[in-house]
Nucleic acid binder design. Structure first.
Length: 488
RNA sequence: GGCCCCAUCGUCUAACGGUUAGGACAGCAGGUUCUCAUCCUGCAAAUCCGGGUUCGAUUCCCGGUGGGGUCACCA
């Protein structure tokens, strides 16, 4: 932590349908920083492009953040299942702030920092084409910058649609990026960026500066793709006479081929991983430690540890390929540490509702599952005995007769043992019995496994007995013994 | 192409200028074992290249190379 100041950070996604895990990472970093300093984390919706916005997009963002257990303190939030706004800096949805942007655009116009541009799209396409042919940088030629007041007046009265462009001054801008250090950009490289579109909506550049200032954001955390447009934002802050926030541009998340993580090469929505049965805790841990490791000596960190240990300066500069195999591993790690009861609660979302006496099934299956969905499937498979081929009951070098005898003996033992409170004790005890009886472990345990689960791959027979209970165990033994009658 | 960013095992990463370059995932080989999974042990695997600065460079500087981003009335 390099400051005692309370940070106000924000996550400002567009409602385009999916909450990209790269977005989740910037949201997480912003959240960690705010929480660490006792500040506020806000959620603002950047819906200035009507074409890209999607129905339910806002709900999806809010809901997915909620599922990840990242609750904004301010801005667009979910309350009792409804999307609403809290805070005194609203509205927090840019499409509802149009008059605010218009007002500031007028100010820039009045100060000569911006100008109206009446050029048609056709003309823009034309000059771009010419510039490309001449191998020049495609840039607006400032045709409208020098228009006289009379000309402007004439266009306005004729209702010619126009945009408002930033008049980029000469000079240089230096970005003091928390992660990357100082970066200098020459204004000559820059275009007179459109600030207000013909439809009266602001562009991202206009809206982000106005909002971050008005909402008193202290540190802007966003993806690296914004680095090269930051000088425009710096210029705007200067023109408005505002102090710019700190900037931190985090590296991109990459596909296996090192291109920008994209839909084409797999799922990129956080909600998709939640839907697949990854735990929110594991997903948060995994995404947060992509390009960042607080201590370097371990992989698993609780959310609170991440909040306490987060440091923007420790965020890597290079892009990170997302290794989903590691997510599998991490999810397993988290599932191992969770109780059967807790996991059962989480599996409600996957259609499995268990009674407390069934939590044992979860305990004995969790080591085998990668996701909650897997786990639910595995548990479901144990809940009822499937039809199985009786020949499976026979251990390798044994025969049906022997299998039947073994099951009878096992049934006798289980019946005599009674209720099992501690699995380890039962296992120890039964193993001892097997030994004193002079039985081959595989010879008796294999038929037990099949009889109790109907499957070749399952938890151990001891675990199965423990979870099924004496009554169901004896019933399944009985079924198996009967199925062996008449086979050899 | 211009501008900008970046560069440690296959992947994610750790290493005040001095370490046998550490850990994790994946891989491989063993062990435990009634199956699978877990678990345990071990193996293999990296400082992009070339110059400098320095007694000493993964670390600092320069140049290459490679990768990425960005150049819209999209964010």
């Amino acid at each position: 932590m390099d400051t005692c100041m309370k940070e106000r950070t924000r996550f400002a996604p567009s409602p385009t349908g999916l909450l990209h895990i790269g977005g989740v990472r910037t949201a997480l970093y912003a959240y960690f920083l705010a929480k660490q300093t006792g500040g506020d984390f806000l959620l603002r919706i950047e819906d200035t492009d009507q074409a890209r916005s999607v129905d339910q997009g806002v709900e999806n963002i809010v809901h997915t953040l909620q599922r990840l257990n990242i609750q904004p303190d301010e801005g667009v939030v979910s309350k009792n299942g409804h999307v609403t706004e809290v805070g005194e800096y609203g509205p927090y949805q840019q499409s509802k702030r149009l008059t605010v942007y218009a007002q500031y655009a007028q100010q820039l116009l009045a100060n000569g920092h911006a100008y109206r541009c009446f050029c048609s799209r056709e003309r823009m396409d034309q000059i771009r084409k010419e510039q490309q042919q001449n191998k020049e940088q495609p840039k607006y030629d400032r045709h409208c910058l020098h228009a006289s007041d009379a000309e402007i007046e004439a266009q306005l009265t004729a209702n010619v649609p126009y945009v408002i462009r930033l008049h980029v001054p000469e000079g240089k801008s230096i970005i003091h990026d928390v992660i990357r250090g100082d970066i200098t950009f020459d204004h000559r490289e820059m275009d007179d960026q459109v600030l207000m579109k013909t439809d009266g909506f602001p562009t991202y550049h206009m809206a982000v500066v106005v909002d971050d200032h008005l909402m008193e954001i202290t540190t802007v955390i966003r993806g690296e793709e914004w680095l090269s447009s930051t000088p425009k934002h710096l210029i705007l802050y200067k023109m408005f006479g505002w102090q710019a926030p700190r900037f931190a541009h985090v590296p991109l998340l990459l596909n296996a081929d090192r291109s920008k993580l994209s839909k084409r090469q797999g799922d990129v929505g956080a909600e998709q991983y939640l839907d697949k049965g990854y735990l929110a805790e594991a997903l948060v841990n995994f995404i947060a430690t992509l390009g960042f490791n607080p201590t370097g000596d371990r992989e698993v960190y609780s959310k609170q540890e991440l909040i306490d240990l987060f440091d923007l300066k420790k965020v890597n500069k290079g892009g990170a390929v997302v290794n989903f195999e590691k997510l599998d591993w991490m999810n397993k790690q988290y599932m191992q540490t969770m109780s059967g009861e807790e996991l059962s609660r989480r599996m409600h979302a996957f259609g499995l509702v268990l009674t407390p006496d069934q939590y044992r099934f979860v305990d004995i299956e969790k080591a085998r599952a990668t996701t909650l969905k897997d786990l639910a499937d595995h548990v479901r498979a144990l809940l009822s005995l499937p039809d199985y081929d009786p020949t499976l009951l026979v251990w390798k070098k044994s025969d049906a007769h022997d299998a039947r005898e073994m099951l009878k003996a096992a049934a006798g033992y289980v019946k005599a043992y009674g209720d099992i409170n501690i699995l380890a004790e039962f296992e120890l005890s039964m193993k001892e019995w097997i030994k004193t009886e002079g039985l081959q472990t595989g010879n008796i345990l294999w038929p037990m496994r099949i009889a109790l689960s109907g499957r070749e791959v399952s938890p151990s027979p001891f675990e199965l007995v423990y979870a099924l209970g004496t009554e169901e165990t004896l019933h399944r033994f009985e079924v198996a013994i009967r199925s062996l009658e008449g086979t050899r």
